[in-house]
Write a protein that binds this DNA or RNA. Structure first.
Length: 708
DNA sequence: GACCTGCTGCGGGCTG
């Protein structure tokens, strides 16, 4: 029995919680973590008690009487740290172990107190850890030289991302200053590739996975309301139906964009006002001011009886505690299965009744993508995310960070430290040398005797706040009403006096714009438009598109579809009917002759499509690309396609020259990687090839594809 | 038509 393995104070905590029993993931984690000092990945669905699964055994095991912080918890979100602080602190009170929040918004007095007496548990963000290495390396040693455990929450949010590469580097740097050998415990509900998760710890061979596959009971329904051709907003009938479906529920609605989240919140509130329904309609996304968002979270969490509706983006995907909701609504397809799982995970009624998932679609392609995601979810598929093996841009950033940390370091020692870190293990020493040479050339580094120091040109960069993060952010205008910030919007044609707009689920009129202070004054208004947000979306994995093709080629019926959805699916299937689909479709892709010309459907992921579009431009072939349908309209006769594909494939195999050219013409191509623009040109090309495009995938696709 | 994430140190002004 796992329970009896726990230390007595922890057993008392468990008894006081009045839990009937330990969850499977908790029982497994207790047995394993107490038995050895290995790294663990705990994979189990949302709200299955993963935090306790990690902390119950760790707190039972670690000797907190010894000096130094013993456990470091890393989280991708400040909001999550603040939530987890309450839970972990409640647990730690049974052991009198102090817990300290360490992020940009936590108390400086608390930080000072911890530095005077380093002990217990610290909750931190990757950027705060980076900042500590850069500005106060002695604090890193004082606090973290004797860690026993590193807990990484929502570890999937770091896998395959630039922020993950940064954290991986920081883990290596922590190990370097450590006198102990801390074990890593990673927590997640959505991991598609366990080998990658193990690799992320930097010690794959020492890492084991504990997995609870149990899903949850879910009542799923698809609903279809076709948008008119020009309809940027949602169809009125959809909004009316959505109101009817959610007016008595606690509902989360995910319409995929910030602008549509505002439309949904404002319009549902309008309908509700008209029929004297409840007034609890909110929006929650990155452009809603933090305090307003916190109010919404607080309302949802502390409200047992009243219904409410939050229209949101991925801000409510991760584990921020908003209590339980009984309906999750997705409008048009989610970008990934992982995202769908996280969203579904937010529902769950305490009484154990099945929670409800409503999947709306406004066009047939979106319906099929949504259906594909849902079927893949049922099959247990999650997109495998692979970390970049040649992150030259991260090496550049970490080189600057280490030079600053040491206040000067010999070139050989710096190279050794960088290349010893697991995330750079596939980078050749020659490339690392080149990056240092480039930093010396542009004056970001300088040689001082035998050592490298931060150069005059580099001081500004390294000393700015922006240095701690590896992602870019756009500049925005603050939107203020009566001295209170409502949120923010990017500069656009819409930013004009007397313009009306939606924000934070309200309607506003712009009364004053201060260009210098980037501040917009607003007053309440009666109607308006959705704000024009800029910004790119995510990427769709090839497997989703392959599933979409399989759905279209089959004749399966799905009882979860309403009648309009069924008709829409049938309509799209008819377009592709009459083709001799083999049982195992792998390389067959359809082309249709339409009025506008030949349309070729690739049914593959965003990165391969993006690469194909690049290659077509290089060949100066005209085309119309539609990512939603994954199709290319081409002014080419069908019999010529194989020859075109062969030409594209040869370009794909030798694409470096064209990428060099494209970068010279348009340096903004590197905007997706914050620290990429300072790399030597051929390393920029390498970063583009590895992270933004997939030319190897495109070449394989072009080699194998059979047009039907 | 398209998501999200975080932030030092120091000095000056203000409040209790």
């Amino acid at each position: 029995m796992a329970f009896h393995l726990l230390a007595e104070p922890i057993r008392r905590y468990v008894r006081d919680q009045r839990w009937q029993e330990l969850r499977p993931i908790q029982a497994a984690a207790i047995q394993h973590i107490l038995a050895d000092d290995d790294n663990y990945i705990l994979a189990s669905r949302t709200a299955s008690g993963k935090t306790e699964a990690a902390f119950l055994p760790i707190l039972s095991k670690v000797d907190f009487g010894r000096p130094g912080v013993r456990v470091l918890y890393v989280s991708p979100l400040i909001a999550l740290i603040n939530d987890q602080f309450q839970r972990v602190e409640a647990l730690c009170q049974y052991l009198a172990v102090p817990v300290t929040k360490w992020h940009g918004e936590s108390s400086r007095a608390d930080k000072k107190r911890l530095l005077a007496q380093p002990q217990g548990i610290v909750l931190i963000t990757p950027e705060s850890l980076e900042a500590m290495f850069v500005h106060s390396p002695s604090s890193v040693t004082t606090l973290f030289a004797s860690l026993d455990y590193l807990v990484i929450d929502e570890i999937h949010s770091f896998l395959g991302t630039d922020r993950g590469l940064q954290l991986q580097s920081l883990l290596g740097r922590l190990r370097r200053v450590s006198r102990t050998r801390p074990a890593v415990v990673g927590l997640s509900a959505t991991i598609g590739d366990y080998a990658e998760a193990k690799r992320f710890t930097g010690e794959a061979a020492r890492t084991k996975v504990l997995l609870d596959r149990a899903g949850k009971e879910l009542l799923t329904r698809f609903r279809y309301f076709a948008a008119d051709r020009h309809g940027a907003d949602l169809p009125l009938d959809l909004l009316k139906d959505l109101y009817k479906q959610t007016s008595h529920s606690k509902a989360l609605i995910f319409p995929n964009t910030r602008g549509l989240a505002e439309v949904v919140a404002v319009k549902l509130r309008l309908i509700s006002d008209r029929v004297h329904g409840h007034p609890h309609y909110f929006s929650h996304h990155s452009s809603v001011h933090k305090e307003v968002r916190e109010y919404v979270e607080h309302f949802a969490k502390n409200n047992q009886r009243q219904p409410f509706c939050i229209a949101c983006t991925s801000t409510l995907e991760l584990g921020i505690d908003i209590g339980s909701v009984d309906k999750v609504v997705q409008i048009d397809a989610a970008q990934s299965v992982a995202s769908l799982i996280q969203r579904v995970g937010r529902s769950g009624r305490r009484d154990g009744a099945a929670s409800e998932l409503l999947l709306y679609a406004t066009n047939a392609w979106s319906l099929v993508q949504s259906l594909a995601c849902w079927l893949l979810y049922q099959e247990g598929f999650v997109e495998p995310l692979r970390a970049a093996r040649h992150p030259y841009d991260l090496l550049l950033h970490q080189a600057l960070s280490i030079v600053k940390e040491r206040a000067g370091i010999g070139r050989i020692a710096l190279l050794k430290e960088l290349l010893d870190n697991s995330l750079f293990e596939e980078i050749a020493p020659a490339a690392a040398h080149e990056i240092l040479d480039e930093l010396l050339r542009i004056g970001w580094l300088e040689a001082l005797g035998p050592e490298l120091i931060i150069g005059v040109e580099g001081e500004f960069t390294v000393n700015s706040r922006e240095f701690f993060s590896v992602f870019k952010t756009e500049s925005v205008f603050k939107v203020v009403h009566a001295g209170k910030t409502v949120g923010e919007i990017p500069y656009s044609i819409q930013v004009q006096e007397q313009e009306n707009l939606f924000l934070a689920a309200r309607t506003w009129r712009i009364t004053n714009i201060d260009m210098a202070a980037k501040r917009i004054e607003v007053v309440p208004a009666r109607d308006g438009k959705r704000p024009a947000f800029s910004g790119g979306g995510g990427t769709v994995h090839p497997r989703i598109r392959e599933k979409m093709l399989a759905i279209l080629a089959a004749t399966d019926e799905y009882p979860e579809l309403d009648e309009p959805s069924r008709l829409a699916l049938r309509g799209l299937r008819q377009q592709f009917a009459g083709r001799p689909w083999p049982a195992q479709m792998t390389h067959e892709r359809p082309a249709l002759l339409k009025e506008s010309g030949l349309v070729f459907y690739t049914f593959t992921g965003t990165k391969i499509n993006r690469s194909l579009a690049f290659l077509l431009r290089q060949l100066e072939v005209e085309f119309i690309f539609d990512e939603r349908a994954s199709s290319f309209g081409l002014g080419v006769a069908a019999p010529l396609l194989p020859a075109l594909f062969e030409q594209l494939r040869l370009f794909a195999l030798d694409v470096d020259f064209h990428l060099h050219d494209a970068l010279t013409q348009n340096p903004a191509l590197m905007d997706f990687a914050k620290w990429g623009a300072r790399l030597p040109a051929h390393l920029q090309v390498a970063v583009l090839k590895e992270r933004y495009f997939d030319f190897a995938g495109a070449a394989g696709f072009l080699r194998d594809v059979v047009v039907v």
